[in-house]
Each structure stands twice: as structure tokens, then as C-alpha cells.
Write a protein that binds this DNA or RNA. Structure first.
Lengths: 128, 128
DNA sequence: TCTTGACCTTCCAATCATTGGAAGGCGTAA
DNA sequence: TTACGCCTTCCAATGATTGGAAGGTCAAGA
């Protein structure tokens, strides 16, 4: 199939598929006589895999690793699990960080009357 | 003062200060005869303000607005509060999103034995 | 056969915020 | 005068994606 059909089947933009190829995330596609990229059903699965990984917030680097594990029948599942676990830890740290920011902002917002007057404890705090 | 001292006093990299000027986040600095940027104590405060906003996750666009409010003595504090509130909402949405991803990943990770064998429910799920 | 339109190709650029380097000018102390 | 630290501008990279331009290919309809 051509890239357009792969895009439709996988849910990944044709432009993005070419980009993934260019950065080496996915292998170079075979070409038709006229230079069109040719794909198989396996590629549909792989791109769905990539898409799902992205939606779970894995970086391209991590996805590269995940793809190689996915392809490798001799993998140890511990490798996959470790990668997932590391990612979970990262995300949890990020959440804690964001939550702290939210808490700070909420405290600030609460202290501000939010009226027509210029005096604003939020701005006062921010300039410290 | 020169940009180096401003950088030291404000905690914002000289490179970044120039960048902020180039994108119009902060006003163009006056220049000495030899072309060096000249700054005052007010600029130290402003850059600290910017830095603090960044650390709270405001975008450059939002900070631009916040700076203009900060400078504007005729502002309504409601404008500041609304901006902060909108940002809080954004962050809370992001947190919910990340938490959902963490939950998904944790469920997946739990189902994987993480041993030397290749069979891995995580990979199986990801390719769906 | 010609044309239309949908599809494909590559290349270059923009996004966002920051950082890095290169190449050169300025200022001051030894 | 030389040396060094600070300053200048410009160009490029990061990470992931999207956009456009300019052009080639393919199948269907007139």
C-alpha cells in the first residue's frame, strides 16, 4: 500500500510517517518503480504501536527502544517493564511538580480580590 | 549595568535576556557608546518577575501579558486573577491527563512478569 | 488524447523556549 | 602591548510536529 493508505489505517499522518523514517525511528520503506513508498500490514501495526506509545508520553528515544524490543523475539520482558517503570517515575515526578505549581497559584489567586482596582498580591508575589 | 551583571542579579542567563529582547518580551535596552546594553535595577526586578512566571509554567505569551499588567498602574487586578485562574485550569487538565497515563502504565506494568522471557503484556497492549 | 484531481515526492521553514558555538569588537589590568 | 573577560551579532541545534511550495505520478472522465 501507499503512504496515504498506511496513514489512514494507522491513524498516523503521512507527513509524520515520512518524518519518522527520516529520523530513523522506522525503517526506510521499499519504493515502487515511480518512487512511492510501499508498505505492508506489519507497518500498520508498527505505526499504531508508535502512536500508542506517543499517547502514553514516551519520547522518540524511548519509542525507538520499544520498537526494537517489540521486533526482537528474544527480548526479556524485564527490559520492557523497566522502561515502562522508568517512564512512570518520570511522569509521577512531573505530576508532583505541576501540582506544587497549582497549589502555589491557587494560594496566590485566593489572596487577590480580582476587582477593578490595580492592587494585586499575585503580581506582588511574582516580582519577588 | 551591563548584561552580565543583570544576568547575575536576576538569575537569568545573558543569552536568554538577549533572546527575550529579540522576541519583544522585554523592551530594547539602551546602549552605551560602544554598543553594550545598559540596564537599571528595575530591569533586575522585571527579569526576576519573568523568571518566576516561567517557573510557574506560564507561556511567553502569558508572561508578555503579565508584564504589561505589572507595568500598568491602571490595571484591574481581575485581569491578573483571570489569567492565573485560566493557567491553573490548564495545569489541572494536564495533571489529570498525566495521571490517566500513569494509571494505564501501572496496570500494564503490573501485568508483566518482567523476567528473561520474551512474552510481555505491555508490548501486546501497545500494538493494539 | 487531454485534462483534472488526488496522490505522491523532496526540501525548507515554522512552532516553543532555550542553549550552544563562531567570529569579532570593547575594556581594563598587568 | 598583550591578555583576558565581557560584550556584540548571527546561525544552528534541541524535540515532535505541522505547514507550504514546487513538482512528478496515476487513474478516471470528456
Amino acid at each position: 500500500m501507499n503512504i496515504g493508505e498506511l496513514a489512514k489505517s494507522s491513524g498516523v499522518n503521512a507527513k509524520l510517517i515520512r518524518h519518522y523514517e527520516s529520523i530513523g525511528l522506522i525503517a526506510k520503506a521499499a519504493r515502487s518503480e515511480s518512487g512511492y513508498r510501499q508498505y505492508s500490514d506489519t507497518d500498520v501495526h508498527m505505526l499504531r504501536f508508535v502512536k500508542r506509545c506517543r499517547s502514553l508520553g514516551f519520547s522518540m528515544k524511548e519509542i525507538k527502544k520499544l520498537i526494537s524490543l517489540w521486533k526482537n523475539q528474544a527480548r526479556a520482558s524485564s527490559e520492557v517493564k523497566n522502561l515502562a517503570q522508568a517512564h512512570i517515575t518520570q511522569l509521577e515526578e512531573k505530576i508532583i511538580e505541576l501540582q506544587a505549581v497549582v497549589d502555589t497559584l491557587k494560594t496566590l489567586a485566593k489572596s487577590c480580590r480580582g476587582n477593578n482596582r490595580p492592587d494585586c498580591p499575585i503580581l506582588e508575589d511574582l516580582q519577588k
